[in-house]
Design a binder for these strands. Structure first.
Length: 352
DNA sequence: AATGGGTCCAACCGCCACATG
DNA sequence: TCATGTGGCGGTTGGACCCAT
């Protein structure tokens, strides 16, 4: 098949996206969510193929994208993951919330590869250059490599990245081990079978795991569970609260902000057959720099509504949500659950 | 100021897997 | 079973930008 037929049939625009196109796509997705990409350009009034729209959204417009330089920790993590996964950029990106596979791939090709070469390492094998040639046959019989994440995330957890021969890597922290240091079998299965970018399902399964292992010395305090949920909730506010601001940093003006107010959840506005919940006033949610490019620091800031500010506890907020409904951003990638790799988000993973 | 080489990155290309009719 | 449409992925490329000469 190759190129999608829709791209060939019509005369479609290619190349860089204009601010106008970005705005159209952004407004469409924020209003109606992602249904069928092939229908997006038509419905959004764009002369692009769906694939191009998808890429633009994923790599540039998605509100949960982290902008700016990669931190040293992120670079180290990418190198570590690349050692295990090779050029599986999507899987590597799944471990770096807010980063895209394209971004990571570019970073690798432009910087990290050279960095390793400067250190005398083969960027493909991650072995010293003189040893790189002599490695092949051993590796096939060896057990899956275990590498230490080269930085400490969270409090005291020593994170170990285990490589699965057929799936994604998975992060395991101390709390999933029995007292003698062995990994709980159930926990192991869960980690091996789930995408790490989906902490919510991790939590669900982990709870089951805890229940199943309750007689086996696996200790997880209820305090921990609460704080874990809380962490996820905090990170996930933008997906559940009812009022948000899109802003362009750092120079915020009133006109840069737009309040995405709650829309009635029973408003089915067609398109893809899904139940899309609309967010009003999203039209003005852009800020462009002098060159008509989207402000590189464009960020999605989840700001509590006044209603939420009155809630004094997480439980109250939850109750409030149940009462008042929520914005459905379920079409956003789950990596959006976390905004900061080095902060609480990773703590959440580490503490599982 | 002009230019040539290097770097970076957004976007495209082509392939694969899967779903559907 | 096959054809077709679609989403997803990794590799590649074109052009903007930077810097040295």
């Amino acid at each position: 098949m190759g190129r999608h037929s829709s791209c060939v049939k019509q005369k479609l625009r290619k190349g860089l996206w204009s601010p106008d196109e970005d705005e159209k796509l952004f407004n469409y997705i924020t209003r109606f969510g992602v249904g069928c990409w092939s229908s997006v350009p038509k419905l959004a009034g764009l002369q692009r193929c769906g694939k191009s729209c998808r890429l633009r959204w994923i790599n540039y417009l998605r509100p949960d994208l982290k902008r700016g330089m990669f931190s040293q920790q992120e670079e180290d993590l990418i190198i570590s993951l690349h050692e295990v996964l090779g050029n599986r950029w999507a899987q590597i990106a799944a471990q770096l919330p807010g980063r895209t596979d394209n971004e990571i791939k570019n970073l690798w090709n432009s910087c990290l590869k050279k960095k390793l070469l400067r250190q005398g390492m083969d960027p493909t094998t991650h072995k010293p250059l003189n040893e790189a040639n002599v490695k092949e046959e051993k590796t096939s019989t060896e057990s899956p490599p275990q590498i230490q994440i080269p930085f400490s995330i969270g409090s005291s957890a020593t994170s170990t990245l285990l490589a699965s021969s057929q799936g994604s890597p998975f992060l395991i922290s101390n709390s999933n081990y029995y007292d003698d240091g062995r990994l709980s079998e159930t926990s192991r299965e869960i980690f091996m079978s789930k995408q790490t970018s989906d902490p919510l399902s991790y939590y669900d399964n982990f709870q089951m795991s805890v229940a199943q292992n309750s007689g086996h010395g696996l200790q997880v305090s209820s305090n921990y569970q609460t704080s874990f949920i809380r962490t996820l909730f905090d990170q996930n506010q933008f997906a559940t609260n009812s009022s948000y601001c899109f802003s362009s940093m750092p120079s915020l003006t009133n006109s840069d902000h737009v309040s995405l107010t709650e829309f009635s959840s029973d408003n089915n506005s067609g398109g893809g057959g899904g139940c899309h919940q609309m967010m009003e006033n999203a039209d003005a949610g852009f800020s462009w720099d002098a060159e008509n490019k989207l402000d590189p620091l464009f960020q999605f800031n989840a700001i509590k509504s006044e209603d939420f500010k009155t809630c004094t506890s997480w439980e109250e907020e939850q109750q409030h949500l149940q009462t008042h409904g929520s914005i459905d951003l379920s079409s956003y990638p789950l990596t959006s659950l976390s905004e900061d790799l080095t902060g609480a988000s990773f703590d959440a993973f580490q503490n599982i």
